[in-house]
Design a protein around this nucleic acid. Structure first.
Lengths: 344, 344
DNA sequence: CTGAAAGCGCTAACAA
DNA sequence: TTGTTAGCGCTTTCAG
């Protein structure tokens, strides 16, 4: 009976070489597709041995020699262990994951708890060739964290925020949150509202702040009072309660602006439960259309997020950076698209 | 100007040793916390040098020497690039990710396209010490794939299905889908329905089949006719259309059973749009309560999934297996809990 | 209490 | 056309 605690023994280059009756250099070449000036018979013999022994190159040996890990690290700064419930994040990660796989790289995924950023596996060792990061927190918090990450001296792509100062070898990829919010705000103005309530998650995300800015830029000059309510998103109960209380305590706003779709859904349901009609009494808008809201009625007026695309793009930029030596672009902003719905 | 294409130079053990005036063996011991019988002064000198040079152990060197990667590979077999939209999957992955991080391991995440299973990065090389897998497809398809994965000779935890035959060094972790479905079916029987419609995703998942089995076991003997409708879940539009057509074509069922919550939400909305009352005219049940449905009214009668817990558990089992040499348990079934709601 | 040295598997420069 | 070899950074045994 094999000792299970010992790592299973897998064929090495040397063993394949012996089986094929050639040197390890030759096997290495075959395995890496460098057939230049090689006899067909040698090649075939080696390939047969590779198949025979089910040879797979040992990543550690290869990485040690080449100083390349062929891995991208994805770091998501989020205090919640359930960080992946956010559909923006999952779409982003899916895009990165697929793109990275397609190009022969691996994806290391890790949440960073803002309380103890050092605890991340990726941060501890030289695990990846490059980093994709999604940061939350206030601007100074993010800046500080980014400075720490920069010490790893990895190329980085930072999602969903503007180019940070003081860090080299970084590029940014984000959707046009400000623009999307402005578009939505103009759409909202058609209702001639006087009071708007903006629903925000408790955790600070730069993209959310950008949306808030876009809304303010358009609504304030038009004389719309914009108040804010921050609520926990964890399980949605907290958000439901917070909004119920807020609405019970003050005058009814003319429109409730969800800075993401989950908050917008909360708004619709709370309003309806209180006997208000959407959109007749109060309009509701969302942000970042993802399929989970598709079946809901009234359909949510929202903004389509290219999160998956952002992930693909960021991954591609990183890999090109690794392979070509420099970022092709430093700042990428992907436009967003207004999605009409009867909620507004 | 530094050549960016060259991997950045990071301090090595040797350099730290020189700086501290000790041998690399000593530095290695300090770095790994093996201080037995070591002068405090030596230790301090080394620690100072480590800090000074911002030393981080090179993972490839360490892995090569120790034959341990300290990485878990997570493989998800799903034809859709958007595999992460499924909240069960994201909760599972979140649980694994956090548990694995906490124990000093990394998580390699990769989707496997059932069409070309070999293409996965994780499958190609020896990237991980152990594998966590979530399979879809028909039973023979899954069996075949599992046989291929077993060739990698990694310890494996397989989620959401029963123990497969013919593979060693595997353990399974799943929620009690059959039991959950039975419970829900009994609850449904209280309505004394005569016709039930079961909504299923097009892609085959063993857990979904288990739920179907649970429903059939209880409903059929009670004389309830159970018909099935499979629909695409991609964007939910396909599911909406399919259900609308199905309902238009035949008699109205007394209850619609969503085999997951997203399908149940589709059912509620389609019914309401057609002028039917939920639950008065038609009852609706879901499966796998995740927070995205929390705000919805009527509240969904559903089954709480411990997906996050399954992830934690699976990860813990895998790491214990790696470190202790054997799986502590071979089969784990986590109970589920019925969630009452006005939709039924 | 500390150090010397072997060797993990691989790639690439160079030799034959 | 193929082979020999050095050495990537690390851990661990054993000698001092």
């Amino acid at each position: 009976m094999r000792d299970l605690s010992a790592p299973r023994k897998v064929a090495t280059l040397r063993e394949v070489a012996e089986a094929a009756g050639v040197s390890i250099a030759t096997v290495s070449k075959v395995v890496n597709g460098r057939f230049e000036g090689m006899t067909a018979s040698t090649r075939e013999r080696v390939e047969a041995a590779v198949r025979e022994l089910a040879y797979r190159p040992n990543r550690a040996g290869r990485s040690l020699r080449s100083a390349r890990q062929s891995r991208i690290g994805m770091l998501i700064v989020d205090p919640s262990p359930r960080f992946l419930v956010d559909p923006f994040i999952t779409n982003l990660v899916a895009g990165i994951s697929n793109e990275v796989s397609m190009r022969g790289y691996g994806l290391l995924l890790s949440r960073i708890d803002p309380e103890e950023p050092e605890s991340s596996y990726i941060v501890k060792g030289q695990e990846a060739d490059a980093l994709a990061v999604l940061l939350s927190g206030t601007a100074p918090e993010r800046e500080h964290l980014l400075a720490r990450l920069a010490e790893l001296r990895h190329p980085m792509v930072v999602f969903q925020q503007a180019m940070p100062g003081g860090v080299e070898d970084v590029c940014t990829v984000r959707q046009d949150d400000v623009g999307g919010a402005r578009q939505m705000a103009r759409r909202i103005l058609e209702r001639r509202p006087s009071r708007a309530l903006c629903l925000l998650p408790r955790q600070r995300w730069p993209a959310i702040e950008a949306r808030l800015q876009g809304f303010e830029e358009v609504l304030a000059p038009a004389g719309v009072t914009l108040s804010q309510l921050r609520c926990d998103e964890g399980d949605m109960e907290g958000a439901l309660d917070a909004l119920r209380e807020h609405l019970a305590a003050g005058p009814l706003p003319d429109v409730i602006i969800g800075t993401n779709d989950r908050l917008a859904v909360v708004a619709v349901e709370v309003l309806q439960a209180m006997g208000h009609k959407v959109p007749e009494d109060v309009g509701v808008s969302g942000f970042n259309a993802f399929p989970f809201t598709t079946p809901l009625r009234p359909r949510l007026a929202t903004v389509r997020s290219p999160a998956y695309r952002l992930g693909e793009l960021g991954a591609r930029l990183l890999i090109e950076r690794i392979e070509q030596g420099a970022f092709a672009t430093r700042e990428t902003v992907v436009p967003v698209e207004l999605v009409e719905g009867e909620s507004l």
